[in-house]
């Protein structure tokens, strides 16, 4: 038996404009961002509850070097969002070489952020912090929440740097267009947006 309804649906879907007025690629990225935002909201909510429920919560971060390091990392990540926008604007103006250079700058800033973050981790591990060990004698949840939340964010940063690299290579070889850069940029700005919550809630709320 023929399936006219399937064919009709395909034609209909192909001709119907998007109700949101955005390309499907961009819509898919936004759907991913919404789902990922829910993931980060869940871990930050869980952290918020255990943080507030423990009046003797250990505050591991000194203004120097931890908070200063965190501020530098924040500035780097915010600047990388700006370079990503510069790359998208250059791509939309058909200036390929300039766009690739800005993508390179974004990758460099992302790598710098990851390096500073790993340095922070190594210093904490050197002080005896582990996923389930608190060297200062308080609740071990401090290490668990710190390493899991910042680790999840760091994973997003490293993945972002790799993805931007792949997109930059493809864009240079004309396999990708400005739309691909814009969609990748959405992801990168989202990584930046998550840090806007991680930095104050994990670092600033736990200053000695």
């Amino acid at each position: 038996m023929p399936e006219p309804s399937v064919a009709a649906a395909t034609v209909h879907a192909g001709s119907e404009p998007s109700p949101f007025g955005v390309p499907s690629r961009k819509l898919a990225m936004w759907m991913f961002i919404v789902a990922d935002a829910a993931t980060f909201a869940a871990v930050l909510f869980a952290y918020g509850y255990v943080r507030v429920a423990n009046p003797d919560w250990t505050r591991p971060f000194a203004v120097w070097p931890s908070i200063v390091n965190g501020v530098v990392m924040t500035v780097i990540l915010l600047t990388s969002s700006l370079t990503m926008i510069a790359a998208v604007l250059a791509a939309q103006a058909e200036r390929r070489a300039v766009a690739v250079r800005w993508l390179g700058a974004t990758m460099a800033l992302g790598a710098m952020f990851a390096a500073l973050h790993l340095r922070e981790w190594i210093a904490m591990i050197g002080e005896g912090w582990r996923l389930f060990r608190n060297p200062l004698g308080g609740t071990p949840l401090v290490g668990a929440t710190f390493f899991s939340i910042t680790g999840l964010h760091l994973l997003h940063v490293v993945s972002g740097v790799v993805v931007i690299g792949v997109i930059a290579l493809g864009y240079r070889k004309s396999r990708f267009d400005a739309g691909h850069l814009e969609t990748t940029g959405l992801y990168w700005h989202f990584v930046d947006l998550v840090w806007m919550f991680v930095f104050p809630l994990i670092y600033l709320l736990n200053v000695r």
Binding site: S81, L186, H189, F190, L193, M196, P200, L201
Partner: peptide, 18 residues
């Protein structure tokens, strides 16, 4: 205070950067 400031920051990033 930190939550309010973070939400303002995130809203600005959503509206302009994204």
């Amino acid at each position: 205070a930190l939550l309010v400031l973070a939400f303002i920051e995130a809203t600005i990033a959503l509206l302009y950067f994204m």
